[in-house]
Design a binder for these strands. Structure first.
Lengths: 181, 181
DNA sequence: TATTGTTATACTCTATAACTATA
DNA sequence: TATAGTTATAGAGTATAACAATA
């Protein structure tokens, strides 16, 4: 539907093209929004069977990888309020995907670990999610896609560092090594 | 439900690094979330004087550039519900940044145009926003940053096309339904 | 006293539906 | 009948504060 809206633009302003920096290419915020909405409406559907869709998937993924085992660390990493994290974990536990365990080193903190079912479910879903992500990046060929993912990772990890919430994109090394081990 | 979940994945597993695809580098959703939160907490502060921060800024930018003059088109482009757009425009009008005008061709539709004040405010803010965005991409040198922005634009525009909400990233040339590219 | 997690409350944002005025 | 916009209401999501348990 190409609406030939005649006489759209009002009388005075003659040149809609704005100053140099004003090209849409530079609208990073808009690009981010578009991508996130697309992500939610595609990946979100794929992981829709999970308690909280993309967030449940991300939590489970972090847990399966053994990163950030405590609720607070999970919340910080995923940008979720700790009071919200309680509910999310509740639902993941109810679904049998993760478990709360006591940390002998710090009895205040709960360690979140994936159940067998949770690990399997995540493994299966992850492939589909990756495929969906790739389709999301369909405008790029394989090489550009990898470049994009790498640049994205660098940016996100640096940002994470700036925020100083938790460790940056440190590769997973050891789970319980926070205190013991 | 719970209870007899047998030894979920406890201390036995020494290698938390998961299967091939499971490296954090590939977690596009997490990267997107990190970036968006960083965007909101940096650019959002810069444009904090605007009625609705980043969204007000994005709306005003779209209007200043002469894209999507009607509220519905604005809403579709920015992924905002049309009932929400009413309030947002209300506040932008109250702030003297934009105006609602009658479209003589279709008296149902309102055309949103930027006021002088709005255009000036946006021009000034855009420079600061761009600078903030660049700081957000600080992990990348100038060349990588441009590459990233370009790839991002390609992805977002293709996604937009898939969603078929409105026209894709047509370069702004003319408001009157001239399609670029 | 500070921290982790939980709960309850309140607030913000968004979606749903109904209504108007135009087409 | 369908579309653009507005308004009102309800819902989901989120943050704030108070609390208990532990450090």
């Amino acid at each position: 539907m190409t609406g030939d809206s005649t006489a759209a633009r009002a009388t005075e302003t003659p040149a809609p093209v704005a100053t140099g920096a004003s090209d849409p290419e530079g609208d990073l915020g808009w690009h981010l929004g578009v991508m996130l909405r697309a992500y939610q409406s595609t990946v979100g559907v794929v992981v829709g069977e999970f308690p909280h869709a993309t967030r449940g998937y991300q939590i489970l993924g972090t847990v399966v990888r053994g990163q950030e085992p405590t609720q607070l660390a999970l919340a910080a990493r995923l940008g979720i309020d700790r009071t919200v994290m309680t509910y999310l974990i509740d639902d993941l536990v109810a679904a049998g995907l993760v478990e709360r365990r006591q940390n002998p080193a710090d009895r205040r903190a709960r360690m979140i670990v994936a159940t067998e079912q949770g690990s399997r479910a995540f493994e299966q879903l992850e492939l589909r999610v990756r495929a969906t992500e790739d389709r999301l990046l369909g405008a790029l060929d394989a090489a550009d896609r990898e470049t994009f993912r790498a640049l994205m990772a660098r940016v996100a990890c640096a940002v994470k560092d700036v925020d100083a919430q938790t460790d940056p994109c440190a590769v997973v090394t050891d789970v319980l090594g926070v205190e013991a081990r």
